[in-house]
Design a protein around this nucleic acid. Sequence first.
DNA 1: CACGTTCTGCATCGATCGGTACAAAAATGG
DNA 2: CCATTTTTGTACCGATCGATGCAGAACGTG
Lengths: 202, 202
Amino acid sequence: MGTGQRRPTGRPRGFDADEALERALLVFWERGYEGASLANLTEAMGISTTSMYAAFGNKEELFRKALERYSEGPSAYLARALEEPTALRVATAIVAGAIRTTTRPTGPNGCLGVQGALATGDSGRAARDLLITWRGNDYSRIRDRFRRAIDDGDLPEGADPALLARYVTTLTYGIAVQAASGVHRDELQEMADAALRGWPLR
Amino acid sequence: MGTGQRRPTGRPRGFDADEALERALLVFWERGYEGASLANLTEAMGISTTSMYAAFGNKEELFRKALERYSEGPSAYLARALEEPTALRVATAIVAGAIRTTTRPTGPNGCLGVQGALATGDSGRAARDLLITWRGNDYSRIRDRFRRAIDDGDLPEGADPALLARYVTTLTYGIAVQAASGVHRDELQEMADAALRGWPLR
DNA sequence: CACGTTCTGCATCGATCGGTACAAAAATGG
DNA sequence: CCATTTTTGTACCGATCGATGCAGAACGTG
């Protein structure tokens, strides 16, 4: 009953939580989990540490929510790519999406899922493990899509979906590192086009 | 004349600087520049912070020297690979060397040149820039080797050395991320074999 | 109005960060 | 022996780390 969303009791928030999370995402993206201090984060978010802790829990939870936002925003190209009609078009769309996302003229270079926490100290271990799981999920979804492509007759019977998924993810992670090093979009796209010419790698 | 190396005046060192640097390298490799604290480093090196600073300068210099040691040790496969007689054998050796180095049963997974400092805060910016230069060097050496392969008639006239070098480095960086995620050596090698079957990417 | 609830600003917490001051220890040269 | 040079252990530096205590402000409700 009722009108659905009711205004909660108590003092209302003085900031937009979505907007603040977006700012935090950008900081994590650029500096990595360990490199992003609470001072960096709260300054970019425009709120105090108190407000951040009240709204998001702690730094680790904030990172987790930023990663979710990343999956549904900059990294949403993956879900769309998996709906392409053929395995080759799926692979092409994934790689192109990765290049576009990691080399946006505005925003950080690289991929949050890679550079967010690749090698860390003890304090970043949870974030690192989270990203390992995140990357593993992407791999599994791509592999499953390629399995379906064999059932569809789109990929030949002899094709290896796991190997092809490993190849596509390896390309995207490599692209993420190149982008973080400042390599430009056009050069990466030419390389990616060539890399998929041998599809499905015989 | 003298006997060459003369024992210097003053109290002699109580530790083996080479051995200590090797230990520091392993810590940086596993935790990254920012994730490796002085306490982590000196404990692994078996010396006090005072001795570390006297022998190596500071944390940044220690990282620089660890990277040099990495280039001449775990990453030495690159120089050997560049001496292979054909471009395909060069590419094959580079990728195989990267897989072996990033998935050693003993020692950290992944590549120091990638995960040592990919995205950092202000304190890690110098290390990050150093690794960008390091990776850029590797790319240039590979590209130059492929240029020579065209002169040798080993690669066809129409081949693009820069594109091929970008492809090989992208594969190795992607492999480094996969290895850091715990993907096993055999799976990566199968993928790499397939990835080079289309060489020179037409 | 008072009340309960939630959020905010300020001050601060103990722990850890990278880095050093200082004097004793251990070597060489006279 | 003494003087010089270099390394070592101890103790410590100010800054920053992630995180919190607390009082008051800002809302809906009765």
